[in-house]
Computed example of a mutant assay.
Amino acid sequence: MTKKTLSEMTFLDHLEELRWLLVRSTIAIIIMAIVTYFISDYLFDTIIFGPTRPTFFTYQFFCDLSHQLGFAESICVTEMPFIIQNTEMEGQVNVFIWVCILAGFILSFPYILWEIWKFISPALYDTEKKNAKVFIFFSSLLFFMGVLFGYFVVIPMSVNFVATFTVSDLVINQFTLDSYIGMVKTSVLASGLFFELPIIIYFLTKLGLVTPEFLRTYRKYAIVLVLIIAAIVTPPDVVSQTIVAIPMLLIYEASIYISVFVSKKEKK
């Protein structure tokens, strides 16, 4: 049986395609999650719990940078005054499973993008369908850049802030395993998906749902929102907030230029 064209497909046909997209994507995530099982020791000891150690790359980098710029020695992280504990019977088992699934999702992200492209490609022009490799490459690149940004910038600064913040010397920080892993998952995924903003804006502009004028109008609100987010996830110093805020603002500005480019192309 020949494959139906877009005009021949019914609503149920589209739902069937979407169902198989989700099935194949889920299988890919599970396969990659199983792969991460065999490196789980490295995944947890070195990667997941890396930001809990003063020797973590980000802390050392900012300490060396502060010395070169002549900043105060206080920016250097010498200790992490907290412990992580498990308080539930199945706590470590649940964390192990969900971390492997998260790692599986990150590793299989390019394949998931390929599945999404196949789903939306029937609605595109022939010239646009040829850009599948470009779409997958840049979307994957932005996502992995966001994941690295979340891991090497957002998480260490968040951990350092909550570890050193205290309302009284009588209070000892003892974080639960679930809360720490939740912070790691949220920071990594949120950063990765936020870096996909230029790709999202590209398609929203093509659909006529977003215009450059709209993005410029709400730029000031976006700046305020980014600064608030940077203030929340970083220690209360200008340097840390700037390091987090600048890449996010650059992503937003890049999205505006992409929207302008697509708008001009659509008008032609």
Score class of each variant (00 low, 15 high):
Met1Pro: 05
Lys4Ser: 04
Ser7Cys: 09
Glu8Phe: 00
Asp13Lys: 10
His14Lys: 05
His14Tyr: 04
Leu15Trp: 13
Ser25Asn: 04
Thr26Arg: 00
Ala28Arg: 00
Ile30Val: 13
Ile30Asn: 01
Met32Gln: 05
Met32Phe: 15
Met32Ile: 12
Ala33Val: 09
Ile34Gln: 02
Phe38Trp: 12
Ser40Cys: 03
Tyr42Trp: 13
Leu43Glu: 01
Phe44Asp: 07
Ile47Ser: 03
Gly50His: 05
Pro54Asn: 07
Phe57Gly: 05
Phe61Ile: 01
Asp64Tyr: 09
Gly70His: 08
Gly70Asn: 09
Phe71Gln: 02
Glu73Met: 09
Pro81Met: 10
Ile84Asp: 13
Thr87Phe: 12
Glu90Gly: 12
Glu90Arg: 13
Gly91Ser: 11
Val93Met: 15
Val93Trp: 15
Val93Lys: 14
Asn94Tyr: 14
Val95Glu: 01
Gly104Arg: 02
Phe105Arg: 02
Ser108Phe: 03
Phe109Asn: 01
Glu115Asn: 07
Ile116Trp: 06
Trp117Ala: 07
Phe119Asp: 01
Pro122Met: 04
Ala123Phe: 09
Tyr125Gln: 09
Asp126Gln: 10
Lys130Gly: 07
Ala132Asp: 11
Lys133His: 15
Phe137Asp: 06
Ser139Asn: 06
Ser140Arg: 06
Leu142Gln: 05
Leu142Lys: 05
Gly146Gln: 07
Gly146Asn: 08
Phe152Asn: 11
Ile155Ser: 00
Ser158Pro: 13
Phe161Gly: 02
Val162Ile: 14
Thr164Gln: 15
Phe165Lys: 10
Thr166Tyr: 15
Thr166Lys: 15
Thr166Arg: 15
Val167Arg: 14
Ser168Asn: 12
Gln174Ile: 15
Leu177Ser: 08
Asp178His: 10
Ile181Cys: 09
Ile181Asp: 01
Lys185Ser: 15
Lys185Met: 15
Thr186Leu: 14
Leu189Met: 12
Ala190Glu: 07
Phe194Asn: 01
Phe194Met: 06
Phe195Glu: 02
Glu196His: 09
Pro198Leu: 10
Ile199Trp: 00
Ile199Gly: 00
Ile200Pro: 00
Phe203Ile: 10
Phe203Ser: 04
Lys206Trp: 09
Lys206His: 08
Gly208Glu: 04
Gly208Arg: 04
Thr211Ala: 02
Thr211Trp: 05
Thr211Leu: 02
Pro212Arg: 00
Leu215Met: 12
Arg216Glu: 11
Thr217Pro: 08
Thr217Cys: 10
Arg219Lys: 13
Tyr221Gly: 08
Tyr221Ala: 06
Ala222Met: 07
Ile228Phe: 13
Thr234Tyr: 03
Pro235Val: 04
Val238Leu: 15
Val239Asp: 01
Gln241His: 01
Val244Leu: 11
Ala245His: 01
Ile246Phe: 05
Pro247Thr: 10
Leu249Cys: 04
Ile258Phe: 07
Val262Glu: 08
Lys264Glu: 11
Lys267Gln: 11
